[in-house]
Design a protein around this nucleic acid. Structure first.
Length: 647
DNA sequence: TGAGTTTCAAACGGGCGGGA
DNA sequence: TCCCGCCCGTTTGAAACTCA
């Protein structure tokens, strides 16, 4: 792996410097990507260089941890393959003693083959010269006298049926020299039986070979011990005390650690505890979640509540386990479990444990959670685990980072626009045309504004009287944030403050002439004089600060009563209807986007901060619904407003 | 390695229905 | 009627892909 210092990179369209590092192929599965590209968040080159070096250091550390994890995994694979092989052989031969003897004899034969290594003399080199096969340890036994002794010893022991002893000696020599090739045929056979194919360059080969040699060496073969007493190994061919390269000893240091412990950040200093202001030891998954949730602003309460569901379900399935024990398999199991849960279960099903709910859904063929919901549940888990990575540093990697959810993104909007006939039904109804109908003013105006402004119901619900303004003779509704001071105060009080769906939703919506004609400005003035905080004061906020939950529900019920029973026709359908009406005019798509509060989908279509009010005013007045006769609605609205004046 | 382009994920904001 | 939570849309920035 290259440790060359990486220099920060600057992208054409960005003022910020970036960090970029290629992930070595061996670690890509664990990292989940082939390269790391991260913004350094600075446009200062000096700062960027410093941050870049720090990130490179962090990633190299992470790669080291992955290496440990991979070694642990390889160890498991290698040792299991050898154990399986020896167990099968013992069954085949009748006992483990026989199996070990058989293998020892095989090692002795393999060693004999490898001893035929050319000496310095054979190669025409002088004593003291560097042997070209120095990487191959058997040159240590390259002098012909030693070779002859090993050969004759093996022949003699084999002749008296003590081949296992010569094998034991060969194993000791191979272990001392870390000469793994003597195990080649056995290791290959063991891996093949386990369903793998490895070569001598594979790390798993080395691990399995050393493990085999260790097992053969340590097996208490009574016969061999007794024989050694009778036929002691000649000193000249006993395993020599030769220095072993550090990597040759690595297998002794590679403990079969769990993936999780390999990912655990062992560093847990008092300094970090002081920085974090909390103990930084082990935490369970739900403790990590609570720590994450506690750091979210009041406005994120709904999000926290949704993701608490993820964690609660995960804990129900796997227990409130230490976060270092959470692995990718569990997250995949979690995803699969969520994908099999029934959607909107009846009470008698919802009260069951999750696994029972899955059984019921399967048995009764109930409709299951949508892909988007599964995606969200997995995201909740992923974000919690990310919190364990950074800032808590309880784990080095997020095991959920590479878990995908198919169908998490819906292809189509499930809500449809109203047909002209349906609009006609809605706006011919007594509730709109009879000024004396017992229909709240707020609902009346919501229904008037919706198809002619394209505002979302919650955008209307959060209008304040002062948001209705006039500029150069054009009246408009300003959808904007509250002041920073107000938002800060509300956050501190734990109140969800007034925000919009996205930043592009902050906009000015010019009022359609029908709305002005109907006397909307009189209604606004009335609320202003009454010093009402909200333009529609009779709407009540729910626990998350949503002011139109009930209104939306009531108005949908009302639509159903009018015979519009299609489940895809909802209040939001007014927005779709307006978009459709815009398409029937000469209005440019980007202006329609601005009216609706959508971000344009290409840079070329961006209007900067917005458009001139007169452009929007002209555009909004282009909107027409041919099937609708607004006259009775306007007349009813005027009477409705006049009635208020006389009260 | 750098940069243009495309795709994906996170973080919301919001609509809606079931059930207590 | 209200709460809970499922479900969907949108934007932004990150990540991935591709090519030079």
């Amino acid at each position: 792996m290259s440790t060359r210092l990486i220099s920060p990179l600057k992208r054409k369209n960005s003022s910020q410097y970036w960090f970029r590092m290629i992930v070595p192929p061996r670690y890509r599965e664990q990292v989940g990507k082939a390269e790391i590209k991260q913004s350094l968040g600075t446009d200062d080159l000096g700062e960027a260089r410093r941050l870049c070096a720090a990130r490179q250091h962090d990633w190299l550390k992470k790669f080291e941890l992955i290496e440990l994890e991979l070694k642990a995994r390889d160890t498991l694979v290698g040792t299991e393959a050898i154990d399986g092989y020896l167990n099968r052989l013992s069954v085949e031969l009748g006992s483990m003693d026989r199996a070990i003897s058989y293998e020892l004899e095989g090692i002795a034969l393999a060693e004999a083959d490898h001893l035929e290594c050319l000496s310095l003399e054979d190669l025409g080199l002088k004593p003291g010269d560097s042997h070209p096969l120095l990487g191959n340890p058997y040159p240590a036994y390259r002098d012909s006298a030693t070779q002859a002794l090993i050969h004759s010893r093996r022949d003699a022991l084999t002749a008296i049926r003590k081949g296992a002893l010569s094998g034991k000696e060969a194993v000791e020599r191979a272990l001392h020299l870390d000469f793994l090739s003597v195990t080649q045929s056995t290791v290959e056979e063991a891996f093949e039986a386990a369903g793998f194919r490895v070569d001598q360059n594979d790390a798993r080969f080395a691990i399995a070979a050393r493990y085999l040699l260790d097992r053969l060496n340590e097996y208490p073969l009574k016969e061999a011990e007794e024989m050694r007493a009778s036929w002691p190994t000649p000193a000249s061919i006993a395993a020599r005390t030769v220095p072993i390269a550090p990597q040759a000893k690595a297998h002794n240091q590679t403990e079969p650690a769990s993936a999780a412990s390999a990912g655990t950040a062992a560093y847990d200093s008092p300094l970090r505890q002081r920085i974090m202001g909390m103990p930084t030891g082990a935490m369970t998954i739900s403790q990590v979640y609570e720590d994450w949730a506690a750091k979210q602003p009041a406005s994120a309460r709904k999000l926290c509540d949704e993701w608490r569901v993820s964690i609660r379900r995960f804990v129900e399935l796997f227990g409130d386990i230490d976060v270092v024990d959470v692995n990718r398999d569990m997250i995949i199991d979690f995803r699969e479990a969520m994908a099999r849960l029934p959607t909107r279960p009846k009470k008698h099903v919802a009260c069951l444990p999750l696994l029972d709910q899955i059984d019921v859904a399967r048995d009764q063929d109930l409709p299951l959670l949508a892909g988007a919901t599964i995606g969200k549940l997995v995201t909740g888990l992923r974000v919690t685990l990310e919190h364990a990575v950074d800032p808590l540093r309880l784990i080095a990697f997020n095991p959920g980072s590479t878990v995908k959810v198919k169908g998490a993104k819906s292809e189509v909007d499930a809500r449809l626009p109203f047909t002209p006939d349906e609009l006609n039904i809605i706006y011919s109804d007594d509730m709109r045309t009879d000024p004396h109908a017992s229909f709240p003013d707020s609902y009346f105006w919501l229904l008037m504004l919706a198809p002619l402004s394209g505002m979302r119901i919650e955008e209307m619900g959060k209008l304040r009287p002062q948001n209705i303004r006039c500029e150069k003779g054009i009246w408009y509704a300003s959808i904007e944030r509250d002041s920073r001071r107000k938002r800060k105060a509300e956050d501190a009080a734990g109140i969800a403050n007034k925000g919009a769906k996205t930043s592009s939703s902050y906009r000015d919506v010019a009022l359609h002439w029908v709305i002005i004609e109907a006397g909307f400005l009189g209604y606004v003035e009335k609320q202003r004089q009454a010093r009402q905080e909200w333009l529609f004061p009779d709407l009540e906020a729910d626990q998350y600060g949503n002011r139109t939950k009930k209104a939306s529900r009531d108005l949908i019920k009302h639509l159903r009563r009018l015979g519009i029973t299609d489940q895809e026709k909802v209040f939001h359908s007014f927005r779709h209807s307006m978009r459709r009406a815009c398409r029937h005019t000469s209005m440019k798509e980007e202006v329609a986007d601005l009216l609706a509060g959508h971000a344009p989908d290409s840079v070329g279509r961006k209007y900067g901060a917005g458009a001139e009010l007169n452009v929007l005013h002209k555009a909004v007045n282009m909107i027409e619904y041919e099937s609708l006769n607004w006259a009775p609605v306007i007349a009813a609205a005027k009477t409705r407003m006049a009635k208020h004046k006389t009260v």
